[in-house]
Design a protein around this nucleic acid. Structure first.
Lengths: 230, 230
DNA sequence: CCAAAAAGGAGAGCACTGCTCTTGCTCTGG
DNA sequence: CCAGAGCAAGAGCAGTGCTCTCCTTTTTGG
């Protein structure tokens, strides 16, 4: 882990980083479908087979990029949360929403990689789970703070929801009442619906002032989780 | 257009249909990324180059499948709307939402093709637009009917929305007041956020009773467009 | 009616992909 | 110090989208 492992290990880390960087460039330029191991190797001046010493397959490289992307958007969300730490919860909520949207607009292919359809065929490995949870945690934290502070607005649990269902949502969002946890999960998914539709062109001849539209929709999502009108 | 054009034209239509059918099978089995022209040709007993007499490129084949998928989900939505024609608007709304969700669960790869990330790199051509609008029209119709009947609940326009923004949403949903049109577009996007998250595994260790969860969320979306609690 | 033209099929081939295997060279740990 | 691990390079396999050249069949126009 430390740098005291000698030149060999450090060189390996550097090459690994260079590969990921070149791959990320290709991803941003052409999209995941056109990301080619051989092209990455070419850009780095190495032969394609040498690259397999660092990543056992193309999918593993993609997985590494997926984790980085999750971390990147999670970090953007955390920065927005911290920057709005003194604002009331609904404002903090929308600030984080906008940060996620901004990140998505700035990194469309990476967004597609993690929130679009699974790329090669395949299912996201376990290793991506903790990174994926990072954004969610930010939203959970905002709602939890509001709950422990001024309180949340009135919410209802889905009629007929099996007890395990509520319990699982509560496990997912500790410190948040179950009905808020359920609303939170819904808002979380809906947020990415809004962003995805904008990003993938579904709003093309429909929504014109997307900035305002999104801000409004994000505010209504905040209401939906009991954060009250801002 | 008619069948009176002779055997040649009819044979062409038949072969075209067979190609699309085989391609759809591959799409359902392996996903868009692994859809291969050569494999389709192999399955049909023809040589790959012959297939180019019918589709000028792989992307054109995909576009044809995209249009068919849009039509398929649109038809499912229309069927659900007609089956619930006598129900009050909120129930009709949720019925259509569930029909779309059911379609998505039954055709995950086709769903990913149209609502997931754009596949090969490219952008959806103009020809897909009318087919894509079909589902949206069903939701618009429900809201319009409610507006012309019992009326809609109170809604607000986004603060600071540029006039053109409201106008465009209103053009998109004729017969619906602008504030409802804006809410409708948001609900439309959010619906596909919910479905996409469920389909692409983002709910995996989070939501357990997905059926109930979705029904509840769809009901709240209905409220959000002014259809009132069901 | 029969030739010209259009349409379709078959095969070879090009450039590319992911991935494997073998061959060497270099660095490192006991 | 030297055996083994780490790494680079190249050849090669099977697959891909796509193009080009033939050849046959069908349609069509003078």
């Amino acid at each position: 882990m430390t740098t005291a492992q000698g030149a060999r290990a450090r060189a390996r880390q550097e090459v690994t980083a260079a590969i990921k960087e070149a791959a990320r460039r290709q991803l941003a330029a052409e999209g995941a479908a056109k990301l080619s191991l051989r092209a990455v190797a070419r850009e780095l001046g190495m032969v394609s087979s040498a690259l397999y010493r660092y990543f056992p397959s193309r999918d593993e490289l993609l997985t590494a990029l997926i984790i980085d992307a999750y971390d990147s958007v999670g970090e953007a969300a955390e920065r927005a949360r911290d920057a709005a730490a003194d604002a009331p919860p609904p404002d903090r909520w929308t600030a984080v929403c906008e940060a996620v949207r901004d990140w998505a607009l700035a990194h469309p292919h990476e967004y597609a990689l993690i929130y679009g359809s699974p790329v090669p065929g395949y299912s996201a490995p376990e290793t991506t789970v903790p990174a994926a949870a990072r954004v969610g945690m930010v939203f959970i934290g905002i709602v939890r703070d509001a709950h422990e502070g001024a309180g949340l607005g009135p919410l209802s649990l889905p009629a007929g929801l099996r007890p395990e269902g509520a319990r699982m949502a509560a496990d997912f969002a500790p410190g948040v009442p179950p009905e808020a946890a359920v609303a939170l999960v819904a808002a979380w998914a809906q947020l990415f619906g809004l962003i995805g539709f904008e990003l993938f062109g579904q709003f093309n001849r429909v929504v014109e002032d997307r900035e305002t539209f999104f801000r409004h929709a994000a505010g209504r999502l905040a209401e939906g989780v009991g954060l009250g009108r801002r």
